[in-house]
Every structure is written in C-alpha cells, then in structure tokens.
Design a binder for these strands. Structure first.
Lengths: 131, 131
DNA sequence: CTAATTACAGTAATCGTTATCGTTATTATT
DNA sequence: AATAATAACGATAACGATTACTGTAATTAG
C-alpha cells in the first residue's frame, strides 16, 4: 500500500543529490532547495531524503562527527574523510577491488555479505598544501 | 596541560570496553557500569568514552542508524552490520589485506591516507537461520 | 469534476550528545 | 600526614540533528 505520489520538492532534492559532488547534510540540501521552494520545510527534506534512501535512489553516509551525509551516487564506492578540515570526498576503487574485498571478508565470516563501504581517513591535498 | 587524573569510573568503563565483544552504545556502557557505580552519570560515561577515544584507547564507530558504538579493540579491523537485526559484529581481514586496500586507494587519490575502516552489510548467521 | 489519498509546511517532541556548575576525589606540596 | 591545587564527578540544563504530529495543499483515481 501507500503508493508513491509525485512531488516537485522530492524531484528537486533528488536532482540536487544527483548533480552535486558534495555530500551534503540534510541541512545543506535544505538550504539549496530553498532557492526553488522558498517555504519548503526541513521536515520535508528529511522525509524525502529517507524515502530516497529507502527506495535505493540515494545513500546515507555516517561519519564519526556531525550529521549524516547524503549521496546521489548509488553505485558502490567509498569515501575519504579529511581529519583536518572535515570534508568528505569520493574515493573510487575499481569495482573489481571492491568485490575482491567483499570476497575476502566472506571467506572467514559466517553470514551473507551484500555490500560494503570503506571510509578512509587522512589529510586531503588542500590541507597538506597549507601545512 | 590538563594532566590526566585517575578515576575508578574511567577504569571501569575501559575495562568493560576491553572485555566485551559487543560494540556497546554509550547508553549500554552506562547500564553496565551502573552495576558497580550505581550513581554514575551518563555524562561521565560520554566524557570518558570520548576521552578514551581521543587518547587512542578506544574507537568510535558510526552506523547509519542509532547512536555511535564504542570498541576497546584498537588494532585496525572492520565491522559487519546486520541489516535485519541491527547487530554490529567484528569482521577481521588479515592485516595484509587492510594495508593492501589502503595502498590501492592511495594510488588514485590525491591526499594522505592514514587509516580506513570498512563496514560490511548483510545478514548475520542468526537471521539467516530464522528465515 | 469530485473523491480519495499522499505530501506538504509548520511546529512540537524526541533522541543522542555536550556543556555548565557546585561538589568530591585524586595528586602534588608542604 | 595535612593542606592546597586541580581534575573528575553527578546532576541537570542546553544543544543539534532528526522524527512525529496536525491541519492544509497537491496529486492521482474514479
């Protein structure tokens, strides 16, 4: 039940997620779509971000500090968190590597592994330059 | 400055983290140490968990749902989150594999990678049995 | 075109976590 | 061992992120 019904707000949120290279927080998404929908509610943003995540059209990324980040790139990939400036960046391993990691993990694990996500830590190039 | 001063509460928290195989939330740690320190405060638990994390004697793990988890195992290792029951389990890859993943990642990434943590998703053996 | 239902905006509530503050425990000094 | 200095405590308030509620508006079905 509960058929999905079109909404311009959700479309706008999805479009932003799919076109930005940032990994925005819910609040950052809110700020952005506010330009097109000046009186959109933050609750609407959260509801739709979770909805998109549930139906597999977005990904939610949790990091050790700050709120969750959202990503419109749904194919398996990894992320890098700069421990200096806090920026979250994409970090791509080729598909074969990801599958290989999952396979290695499955070897000694008693359960079914369907996916994985690696979070790398370190210093981004910008922060290295500054120091 | 701010020399670290011994406290029985912190010792108890650390001992629990080091002996349990669970990956407890702050609240779960609180419930446990309450047995020995009936009027310990939740704030004290948080303060010490963060302190232990800061000085490298514990690890904080963020997952897409619920609060952060804490782990007294500080050597690099990975985790598995069961998407059915929500349990967080250890998942060990041998050290060589972890280093290999970091090396592969560094190859095409413009920055310095110091560590990584992979979160695997799937169904744990208990949940597979039940279905 | 009307009815049914989902989504909305606005707001209150909740949850996890951090900060504040006066008191207690630990450590350093005499 | 007594005292002084200071870090840690317990209690509670404050906070930020997220979710739940409610009456209204938009979308879809008949």
């Amino acid at each position: 039940m509960a058929a999905l019904k079109y909404s311009r707000q959700r479309e706008s949120i999805k479009h932003y997620l799919m076109t930005t290279r940032e990994h925005p927080t819910a609040d950052a998404v809110y700020m952005h779509v506010k330009k097109d929908f000046p009186n959109i509610s933050l609750g609407t943003v959260y509801r739709n971000l979770n909805l998109l995540t549930d139906i597999g059209e977005a990904i939610k990324i949790s990091t050790p500090n700050g709120g969750d980040r959202f990503d419109g790139r749904i194919e398996p990939h990894n992320h890098f968190l700069c421990t200096k400036c806090g920026r979250l960046l994409d970090l791509d391993l080729d598909m074969h590597s990801i599958e290989e990691v999952n396979r290695l993990a499955a070897e000694n694990f008693d359960g079914r592994i369907t996916s994985s996500s690696t979070l790398f830590y370190g210093e981004c190039s910008d922060c290295i330059k500054k120091s």
